[in-house]
Nucleic acid binder design. Sequence first.
RNA 1: GGGCGUUUAGCUCAGUGGUAGAGCGUUCCGUUCACAUCGGAAAGGUCGCAGGUCCGAUCCCUGCAACGCCCACCA
Length: 734
Amino acid sequence: MESRYDIKEVETRIAKAWDDAGYANPDVCVEKGVAKKDAEVFSMILPPPNVTGELHIGHAAMLVIEDILARRNRMQGKRTLWVPGADHAAIATQSKVEKLLQKEEKKSRHDLGREEFLRRVNDYARKSHDFIVTQVKRMGASLDWSREAYTLDDTRERAVRTAFKKLHDLGLIYRGDRVVNWDPKGQTVISDDEVVHEERTAMLYTFRYGTLADGTPFPIAISTTRPETKVGDTAVAVHPSDARYRDFVGKEYDVVFCGVPLHLRVIADEAVEKDFGTGALGVTPAHSAIDWEMAQRHRLPLVPVIDERARMAIAAAPGSPLNGMKTAEARERIVEELRAAGLIEKEEEVPQSVATAERTGAIIEPLPKLQWFIAVDKAFTDPAGRTATLKEHMRDAVRGGGIKIVPAHFEKIYFNWIDHLHDWCISRQIWFGHRIPVWYRGAETFVGAAAPAGEGWKQDPDTLDTWFSSGLWPFSVFGWPPQTEKEKGDLAAYFPNTILETGYDILFFWVARMILMSSALTGQVPFRTVYLHGLVRDAKGQKMSKSKGNGIDPLEMADKYGADATRLSLVIGTSAGNDLKLSEDRIRGYRNFSTKLWNIARFLEMNRPGGADGTHGIVGAAAVADAEKIAARDEAKALAALKREVDAHLDAFEFHLAGEKLYHYLWHTLADVVVEAEKKNLREGTAEEKAESYALLEHLFLDAIALLHPFMPFITEEIWGIFRPGRMLMVEPW
RNA sequence: GGGCGUUUAGCUCAGUGGUAGAGCGUUCCGUUCACAUCGGAAAGGUCGCAGGUCCGAUCCCUGCAACGCCCACCA
């Protein structure tokens, strides 16, 4: 044994040995007899990293927790499958490549055209993918690469098109003209979940539209932070119980507002807040989601006045100077005019939450658009024969106990989200992604997994929200809808997944969507348990980011302190759903632990009977000493108790407690106490005493090392190989 | 506005109905004998605040406060 533990040499060699052995593939385990053919199954998918760049510390934390699960279950003899993959991440990847293109060639995607641009994005995605794969392997993740999948490959495209077709046939996918979240910068529609609300202060203006034909002022004053949208108003809404305005309800008025003729009806609607502003609301059905809904209820006309570039476009007043202005400019102009006309009654600053696009940061412009949606409130009959809405399915999957969420309090957060859920807008005006499997010819529409026969069909130019394909992942990775025997076998064996492990930040984006898709398309829950981990933050608790420069690169840490030490630092000190504060000091601390383990191993080897010179002689000590005698010793009983504790913690998903106890046992019990106590015997004892001492220490050490394997797989595998050559710890019985 | 969570030693966090623990940090001592990437020891906390239940609460209940997160169509 080397006196110094050469982290990089060992970790590289061991990683290759695992690769060669192929035990991450359960079929190989069955073939080689380390798992029984009919053994219990443990299956899990790797949340596919986006092909937008590199592995960050958050990915590393995810890999570690999942690898601990996979390795322990594999050692327990289960047919264990952990499936790797990558996500094309439509919008994220496209905008990344667009940025590069702009920076390096000063070109937009339109300069290249759809085909050439997509070629570039796919190139980028491939390189990014290859890099991520090497990084994932470096962390020691025991994934079955023979089953690797990509959300945009042919098999997954088949799944996406089949899913679209089926959901459409069930009446759950529909095309609708509605006010949607338009991102003027990204030039695409986005879903409600991709909207981020930012707190800002805004000016709230209270004013009257203008003067009526008979010279009297418009009878009701309204309040708004967006006067420029008021040129699109078609009603004024008040609360039904508001006595101040009761007499006006039902009346209609013609008024000219800043040169734009408006026809306004006074309506009564529960959605109006009596105490806000004047208690009267100017209704702009085309540029506000709530107003649009009100307009539906009262059959109000829709008058769009803002275009896709977020500029004014007032059809009713083609000559208006407002046309072509940005909304902010138009707002100023209108306020000035109102001031000049003496129509403003009040101007006050109010806190306001502005809707912005998660990806581009642009302020969302609600616009009426024809888009594809998934209906969440429409009843349908699922493959299991149950009739309910998607919302009900999603609720019942968790409430009925089919899915258990860890930690449990996220169940409440999940239900709260479902309560507020609206129909999911799934079409995007971007190029990278799954093209919507719908073809048009004149007034005809065809929905299907493949293009229709005949001339003149044109496919919908839009693509699908990236979460549409991610939502299918728990079964699409196995080739759903199955065609081959292998796909059928995999689906039957590994779906539903035993567990889904991911970060709590994508509970809605991803976890909820998988439950939605799975219940509608398979009639089953996609997984039995959801374990949610927290975010990795820096030592001050701040989010790590490149711009702040406070990020910790897991690969750099792995090279410096070892993947093992990096792994342990990402597990100890955090628990389910809680954020982890990480510093390089902590990682260094666990590197010291690796060194300690190495030195215990060296000490043992030096004292091995018949091998004092360090040669790997026959492993005879255990045989010489009476195994029963060893097992009866208090030290062995203490270790057995430790194993029970570790098992209990792992069963309860308390990885940090299990890791801490093993750490503490190996260092502060085994090394500091037991080894010290046995030193006398090892040096001065009889041959028999020496053998017993050695056998005891070896027994305790190797058992503890085996328990530690899921946490620190590299060094434990290496040490195991020294004392038990020829057998891989990775598949030793737990 | 609705929902969720956190509050324990300087820092990061465990934990239990019976007058508190770990790691790191600090201080002191030691160490040619597996390991200075080491060993031993010490200092350090009225367990956010106020009530309640109990023989007894840091742990259970109620209220409050501070901090954080998520959601949201009061314009």
